[in-house]
Simulated assay, not measured.
Amino acid sequence: MLKDQYTATGHAGSNDCNNALNRVTWIVASKGGTVHDITIGDCVELQHAIGEHQTNGYHGKHLFYALLAGLGVFGPDAPARLKTVMLPGQLTPAALVDRQGITCTAIRDLLVDYLTERAVDVDYTTTRDMT
């Protein structure tokens, strides 16, 4: 079933296919259920776990997600790419300041207020670069 989906995507390289199938198998083996029980969260969890232990990736590392999405496992509204799910969105000014680990509440609150006020007039990248 997954190999047929792999062939239909037009991807070349049996190593990529084997790695994708291994990842799907790992999720099913560790979580239980069937391939159709896999969730997007399972895929994200696997990618984070692999990222902690793998120093170099391979070209088709997100292929397993594309195969599952192509089979309709995640439903019609699922993002087409795992990278879309894993990318963080824009952080709030408070979250940007909190990344700095400021322990003084008064200073932290002052910076949050400043960034919140400035964020109205500048783009997100400029706001993020101010922290």
Rank of each mutant, 00 (worst) to 15 (best):
L63W: 01
L115V: 04
T7Y: 10
A20V: 13
H53T: 10
D98R: 04
T55S: 11
H53V: 08
L91I: 05
W26F: 13
G32N: 08
Q90G: 02
A12D: 14
H53P: 08
A29L: 13
G101K: 12
A29Y: 05
E52Y: 04
I107N: 15
L82H: 08
N19M: 12
R128V: 11
H11I: 10
R128L: 15
Q100F: 09
T127L: 06
V44F: 06
T7I: 14
N56D: 07
D121W: 03
F64I: 07
D16V: 10
G72R: 02
G32I: 12
V120E: 10
T125E: 13
G10E: 00
L63F: 01
V112T: 11
D129H: 08
P93W: 00
G33R: 11
S30L: 00
Y65L: 04
P79T: 01
L111P: 12
V112P: 04
T25V: 06
F64P: 07
T131N: 06
H11L: 06
G101S: 10
P88S: 14
D37E: 12
G60V: 05
Q5Y: 04
M86E: 13
E117C: 11
T131W: 03
S14C: 07
L96V: 07
E52R: 07
I107C: 14
T9V: 01
L96P: 07
N15V: 13
D37C: 02
N56M: 06
V24R: 00
Y6M: 02
R118P: 05
V120F: 01
Y124S: 10
G51S: 02
N22K: 12
Y114E: 09
L68A: 09
S14L: 01
L21G: 09
L111V: 11
G51K: 04
E45N: 15
K61L: 04
N18K: 09
N18I: 05
A66E: 13
V112K: 01
A106Y: 15
L110M: 14
Q5D: 07
L82N: 00
A66Y: 06
T116V: 06
A69M: 11
M1I: 08
Q100R: 15
P76W: 00
A8H: 03
M130L: 13
G75A: 02
T92W: 03
N19Y: 12
N22G: 05
C43F: 07
Q100N: 10
L21H: 07
G57A: 01
A66Q: 15
V120L: 09
K3G: 04
G70L: 11
M1L: 05
V44A: 13
A78E: 04
M86C: 04
V24K: 03
T105V: 15
D98K: 09
E45I: 08
E45P: 01
L67S: 01
H48L: 03
R108P: 13
R128C: 08
A119W: 03
G60F: 05
V120C: 05
A95R: 06
I50D: 08
I38E: 12
L46I: 07
D4W: 00
L71M: 03
N56S: 06
H59Q: 04
M1S: 11
G60L: 03
T127A: 05
N22D: 13
